[in-house]
Structures are given as structure tokens and as C-alpha cells.
Design a protein around this nucleic acid. Structure first.
Length: 423
RNA sequence: GGAGAGGUGGGUGAGUGGCUGAAACCAGUUCCCUGCUAAGGAACCGUAGGCGCGAGUCUACCGAGGGUUCGAAUCCCUCCCUCUCCGCCA
């Protein structure tokens, strides 16, 4: 959510900035509602004031043993008027809130203009895409040839966009998770957390998935209104919801491995082959909660932490800064890391690292106590994948295959594979 | 699932219809005293919002939402959560 003060005072400016994302803000309607709100709020508060004062004087009169009936008569119709004013005001504030919750974050000035992913800005490339003296297979062929990947069973068990892994591939998948968690906790100073895989609606509102993106989520049936998490970002960031963090605890750096569940509504026909786009996938996530003036520095560092995973594995990748049209709803600035996939002869997203500034923390009232002012102020939140495990598995299979259908295990993972060097 | 207890400001914890936005203590900030890494004293010290150039002033908030009342932290209802005991269980 944007700062309501900016929305009140600089509505026109906000609208202009949002144009960069192709978001049309209904300035007219918003300022009309806002004007109405002001009038109604003043009126309501005046009525409340009147009620409070009169009630107090009734209390005093009663204590003094006076007849309070005349005073009671005075406030006879006040209650009705007040009740109506209050409910009108509530209604108005609810609709303002609905509008506010639907407005995306303002972009950082460094974000380039652009319409879609074609306009993203490449920052760097790392590593050389491998050269093969044979036609490289894709991960589906590689996996199915050895019986490691069983999509038929997954379809039987559940449906499309799920996977069953067997034997060594299942182990490699697990090894990747351990490797990533160890790297971030041992070398990057993150605290590992284990969190629920189901969350309530408040948490999803906090990080921005609700109310606007409900169709991307799996909602549970039953007595609880719970949702499967689409990313660890949701439970981990919401740890600080409604909290005031003392300065000496900052920055908070969390890492967590969780499954992620996405309905992938609206992506029909996209990436239907293989493991690139699944309803359920594993991810190791990094989340930081930092002082506002440190958040862009933290974004660079966090992105670097994700890059380190790729570098240690020896996977070629490129880093791109998303353009205005491609940055997500809640983010002010986003870097994507894209790993080289030989079968597709292209770079594919494997990590997304964003600075949300105070967009999420305002929704969840996550604050810190600024020692300079002594006052609670909003934190900034940063997160990024480090990395998406399923896609990393795909990248390893495809990049480290040989002509005989073997997968060579990167040295960094070998200790996690019991010393094995080849799958 | 059954029985009971409870949810109050950054923390601990009083408060059972008006004088309580909330005692006291701890933490914090400022000042005083003290010639020294101690101790003592005083003042300030919740969050959000409205109006006002401003000093200021008004409103809301005591788990959440309803209700009763001129008036609710306090009474009633529903829900959520925590703790204790019993049952069940990976």
C-alpha cells in the first residue's frame, strides 16, 4: 500500500508515476471520495465529541444527586444521528481502503521505462553456456530415459503440472535444498526459519497477494479460511506483521525452504512440457527486513547471494533489471536472474529479487524504532529466491549432461550426494 | 474433542459501568546531584487519524466483530488466540 498521505496530497504526481506501469489511477473518483471522507469524518467526530461531553456531564450530575432527566432528553436523538454518520463513514473508508489496496507500488527512479520483458535491461552475464558435440536433450527426456522422472504417475495422483521424482534425481533435488540453505546460513548470515505452508488471508494481504491476486492461489476448503503459500515470502515476511523491532535487531535476514503452490491461472498453454511451471515446487527464499536507508544496498547484496548459488554450481546465467512494465505489483525494483537452458537455447528465470520498500510493511504495520526519533517507523522489506529448486534441477540436468544421458554432479553438490560425481 | 483460566501500552501487570487513554514497576529520553565504569532525585515517555500556519485541539483504539447503555477496558453475544488438566493422535 502506498502512503495515504502521498495519495491525499500528491494524487496527481502519484497518477503520473503509476502511468509508467500502465496503471490508470482514477484521480477524479479518488479525490471526490477523499473530499467526502473529510467532511464526513469531521461531522462524525463532532457528534462523538458532543456525546462524550454530554455523557460526562450526566455522570457528574448523577454523582451530585441532581435530576438527570433533562440532560437525558437532550441526548435523545444524538445516538441515531451518530450511528448513521459512523456507518456512512465506515462505508466510505472501506471503499477508499479497497482502492488503496489495489494500487501497485511506485517504481524506483532507476527502473527503466518499458512495456514487457522484452524491454528488461541486461546487467551482466556470468559463465559460458556449455558447448556440446551432440544435440543436448531436455530435462524431460533425460529424466524419463532413466526412470528418474515420472510425470504419468504425477498426473494420475493429482493432475498436470505435478511431478514424481525417483531415486537419484529425488536425492539431487534434496541435495540442492540443503546446499542452498547451508550456503545462506553459513556464509551469508541468514537465519534459517521453518514456517507454515498454509497462511490466513491477513498474511496474504500483508505481502500483497490479496485482495487482487486471489485467482493465483490455492484456497483450502473446510472450516478454516486458509491458503497454500505461493512463496515463503508470505509466511516469512509476515513474521514481523504488527511488530515493532528494536534497532539493535536489524537487519533481520531470514532464509527458509518451503514448497510453493501456484494455481497458474492464466498461464494455460505456457511451459506445458516438463518442470518449468508446476503447481507445486520447492524454493529456498531469502527475506530481509531492513532500515529504510539501507534497503537498496540490501537488494544488491541479496541478489548477489542468489548469484552465488549459481556461481558455485557453475551454471551460466544473466542478471536483468526489470523494466517498468514488468515489475510486479508490490515491488519498487526487481532483478531477475535467468539461468541458461541448453535445450531451449535461452535464459530462463530462476530467481527474482525485489525491494518492496514500505509497500508490504505498511500493509502489515511492520515497524522498527528509529533511535534518532524514538518513534516507530516502517521497515523496508526485500526478498528473493535463492533459488527456485525445481528450475535449478532442470538447469543442472540440461547443462551437465553428457552424450550418454548421464548427469554430472557439480563439485559443490557432491558432498550432499554421498560423494557421487555422476548420476 | 471435553473441562477450566486468561488475552490491557515496548515489557511485567492493576483496573469489573462515568473522576481511566488507562495505576504501579521495568525499559527508554531529558535534566539535576555526585570528581570518576556505582548510586540517588526530578520531569517526560502508547499507536493511528482529523482540524489548525501554530501553541494546540478533537476522535478512535484495552484480542477481533457485533450488542446493551446517556456513557463500556469493565455487562451480554459470536469468533480468534494463549495457558492448565483429561481424551485422542503423526
Amino acid at each position: 500500500m502506498l502512503d495515504p498521505k502521498i495519495l491525499r496530497n500528491d494524487l496527481q504526481l502519484v497518477a503520473e508515476k503509476l502511468q509508467r506501469r500502465n496503471f490508470d489511477l482514477d484521480v477524479e473518483r479518488l479525490s471526490q471520495l477523499e473530499d467526502k471522507r473529510k467532511i464526513l469524518q469531521v461531522k462524525t467526530q463532532e457528534l462523538q465529541n458532543e456525546r462524550n461531553t454530554k455523557s460526562k456531564s450526566i455522570g457528574k450530575a448523577k454523582a451530585a444527586g441532581e435530576d438527570i432527566q433533562p440532560l437525558l432528553d437532550q441526548v435523545a436523538d444524538l445516538g441515531e444521528k451518530l450511528k448513521q454518520a459512523e456507518s456512512e463513514l465506515n462505508e466510505l473508508q472501506d471503499s477508499l481502503q479497497d482502492i488503496f489496496l489495489g494500487i501497485p507500488n511506485l517504481l524506483d527512479d532507476s527502473v527503466a521505462d518499458g512495456k514487457d520483458e522484452a524491454d528488461n535491461v541486461e546487467i551482466l552475464r556470468w559463465g559460458e553456456p556449455p558447448q556440446f558435440d551432440f544435440v543436448p536433450k531436455d530435462h524431460v527426456d533425460l529424466g524419463q530415459n532413466r526412470g528418474w522422472l515420472d510425470l504419468e504417475s504425477a498426473a494420475k495422483l493429482t493432475g498436470s503440472r505435478f511431478m514424481v521424482l525417483n531415486g537419484p534425481l529425488a536425492r539431487l533435488h534434496r541435495a540442492l535444498i540443503q546446499f542452498m540453505l547451508d550456503l545462506h546460513t553459513n556464509e551469508h548470515d541468514y537465519q534459517e526459519v521453518y514456517v507454515p505452508y498454509m497462511v490466513n488471508a491477513d498474511s496474504l494481504r500483508g505481502t500483497g497477494q490479496l485482495p487482487k491476486f486471489a485467482e493465483d492461489l490455492f484456497a483450502l476448503k473446510g472450516e478454516h479460511e486458509y491458503y497454500l503459500i505461493p512463496t515463503a515470502e508470505v509466511p516469512v515476511t509476515n513474521i514481523v506483521r504488527d511488530e515493532i523491532i528494536e534497532d539493535d535487531r536489524l537487519p533481520l535476514k531470514y532464509t527458509a525452504h518451503t514448497p510453493c503452490f501456484r494455481s497458474e491461472a492464466g498461464s494455460y498453454g505456457k511451459d506445458t512440457r516438463g518442470l518449468i511451471r508446476q503447481h507445486q515446487f520447492e524454493k529456498v527464499e531469502m527475506v530481509q527486513l531492513v532500515r529504510p536507508d539501507e534497503s537498496y544496498q540490501a537488494l544488491e547484496a541479496l541478489t548477489q547471494h542468489a548469484e552465488t548459488v549459481l556461481q558455485r554450481l557453475g551454471l551460466a546465467y544473466r542478471k536483468v533489471a526489470l523494466c517498468a512494465g514488468d515489475v510486479g505489483f508490490s515491488s519498487a525494483k526487481t532483478y531477475d536472474l535467468e539461468v541458461w537452458l541448453p535445450a531451449q537455447q535461452t535464459y530462463r528465470e530462476i530467481s527474482s529479487c525485489s525491494n518492496f520498500e514500505s509497500f508490504q510493511t505498511r500493509r502489515m504495520q511492520a515497524r522498527w524504532r528509529n533511535p534518532e526519533t524514538g518513534k516507530p517507523e516502517l521497515l523496508h522489506s526485500i526478498n528473493g529466491s535463492g533459488l527456485a529448486v525445481g528450475r535449478t534441477l532442470v538447469a543442472i540436468m540440461e547443462n551437465f549432461q553428457d552424450g550418454d544421458g548421464n548427469i554430472h554432479i557439480p563439485p559443490a553438490l557432491q558432498t550432499y550426494m554421498g560423494g557421487k560425481t555422476v548420476l
